[in-house]
Simulated scan of single mutants.
Amino acid sequence: MKTGSMSEEVARERQDQYGYEITSLDQTTTLVESVKSGNADVLMDDYPVIAYGVQQGSGLVTVGEQVEAGDYGFAVNKGKNAELLEKFNTGLAELKDSGEYQQILDDFLASDDEAVDRSTFWGLVVTAMPALLTGLKNTLIVTAVAFLIAMVLGLVFGFMKISRNRFLRAISTAFVSIFRGTPILVWAFFFYFGLPQLIGTPVNIWVAGVLTLALNGAAYIAEIVRGGVQSVDPGQMEAARSLGLGHGKSMQKVVLPQAFKIMTPSLINQLVIMLKDSSLLLAIGFAELLYQAQQIYASNFRVTEVLLIVAVIYFVAITLLTQLANFADRKINK
């Protein structure tokens, strides 16, 4: 049963009568997967949700009679949006009185007469792909923007960490320690839910997503930069200085070109990590690839098949991205 739902309440009321065991889970998709995997014999949830999943090929069937309907609510902030609430109640009453509400429900649960049979795996691929490609596009965009910002910040904090200035080193160390030492999800929640409460204005979900990935990535890139520069033989700097070059010119002309060759594989790896980490943004509702998959299997309950499609898309995207990055590396560092 779904935790805290009316289904759970009804099941507990009848538990003594029928003598079954109850396992409460937090999501309908988890309930469905428990039945399909054999860990549960039956599930009980909202009929329209389950019936739509059956119609979409979830692999389950409905049995028995429906129990009495529960109450559903449309929530607004207390004391606010009175006009919206009134319009909603009026519109809902009109829909029910006219019979249109029932017609919408019937259409929602109607048999699928389209050319593509959604109950098959190929039908699932065809119907899910538009939403998944939209999610992939959002994933690539947010990753690209965040990586560019992370590169700039990573270079700045990386050079600060090897600076002779003790104060700059302390700032860089604090930045790296904070963002490497805390989960990325904490920052996603902070930027999207916490920061608006501090500044008094909403934060765009794209801004929150980019900030989350960029700052986390910058902390790792800063360490890559530090390690790359310090991996260059100190004799290279000494040789450049002996030829009359200043410290800045020696870094620019001699040390950094060698350091970037050393850093490139790690930077490519960090780009791939950021692409995969973008999936964590689904927790704040960012419409990336895994979020779109979640929306699909939340309605049709075909979790394994949808996630398999997503895994293939991720694999192809990361493979192509890695090959592109390696090609650029060979061109730049040949």
Results as ranks from 00 to 15, higher is better:
residue 292 Q to Y: 03
residue 309 I to N: 06
residue 227 G to Q: 11
residue 320 L to Y: 03
residue 111 S to Q: 10
residue 182 T to Y: 02
residue 171 I to S: 01
residue 111 S to R: 09
residue 196 P to V: 06
residue 134 T to A: 12
residue 24 S to Y: 01
residue 267 L to R: 01
residue 313 I to H: 10
residue 327 F to V: 00
residue 317 A to F: 03
residue 118 R to A: 02
residue 99 G to K: 12
residue 74 F to N: 04
residue 117 D to G: 06
residue 247 H to V: 15
residue 325 A to F: 00
residue 308 L to M: 15
residue 201 T to M: 15
residue 182 T to E: 13
residue 300 N to L: 12
residue 48 P to W: 15
residue 205 I to C: 04
residue 55 Q to Y: 08
residue 187 W to Y: 04
residue 18 Y to H: 12
residue 268 I to L: 03
residue 52 Y to W: 12
residue 42 V to R: 07
residue 334 K to C: 06
residue 15 Q to T: 10
residue 85 L to T: 14
residue 242 S to P: 01
residue 285 G to F: 05
residue 214 A to K: 00
residue 192 Y to F: 13
residue 163 S to W: 03
residue 137 K to C: 13
residue 302 R to S: 01
residue 123 G to L: 07
residue 237 M to T: 05
residue 316 V to I: 11
residue 6 M to N: 11
residue 261 K to M: 07
residue 5 S to D: 15
residue 132 L to P: 02
residue 241 R to G: 02
residue 74 F to C: 04
residue 269 N to D: 14
residue 82 A to R: 14
residue 114 E to S: 15
residue 226 R to D: 08
residue 21 E to M: 06
residue 172 S to E: 06
residue 28 T to F: 09
residue 67 V to Q: 14
residue 39 N to W: 04
residue 81 N to R: 10
residue 114 E to H: 09
residue 137 K to T: 14
residue 124 L to C: 05
residue 275 L to G: 02
residue 58 S to W: 02
residue 146 A to E: 00
residue 316 V to E: 05
residue 153 L to Y: 09
residue 80 K to C: 04
residue 140 L to W: 03
residue 299 S to P: 11
residue 261 K to A: 05
residue 111 S to C: 08
residue 155 L to N: 09
residue 222 A to M: 03
residue 72 Y to W: 09
residue 322 T to N: 04
residue 137 K to A: 14
residue 332 I to Q: 00
residue 300 N to K: 08
residue 146 A to V: 00
residue 277 D to Y: 07
residue 278 S to E: 01
residue 140 L to E: 05
residue 256 L to Y: 05
residue 6 M to C: 07
residue 103 Q to S: 14
residue 15 Q to C: 13
residue 128 A to F: 05
residue 193 F to T: 03
residue 216 N to R: 11
residue 106 D to V: 11
residue 262 I to T: 14
residue 215 L to P: 11
residue 293 A to S: 06
residue 157 F to H: 07
residue 259 A to I: 11
residue 196 P to S: 03
residue 28 T to M: 07
residue 142 V to L: 01
residue 8 E to P: 01
residue 301 F to H: 06
residue 309 I to D: 02
residue 319 T to S: 15
residue 93 A to L: 11
residue 98 S to I: 11
residue 80 K to V: 09
residue 163 S to N: 09
residue 183 P to T: 07
residue 261 K to Y: 03
residue 121 F to V: 11
residue 167 F to K: 05
residue 251 M to H: 08
residue 181 G to Y: 04
residue 248 G to L: 15
residue 218 A to W: 01
residue 269 N to A: 14
residue 238 E to T: 09
residue 70 G to Q: 08
residue 100 E to Q: 02
residue 257 P to T: 13
residue 45 D to C: 08
residue 182 T to R: 00
residue 205 I to R: 01
residue 332 I to D: 00
residue 281 L to F: 02
residue 247 H to Q: 14
residue 10 V to A: 13
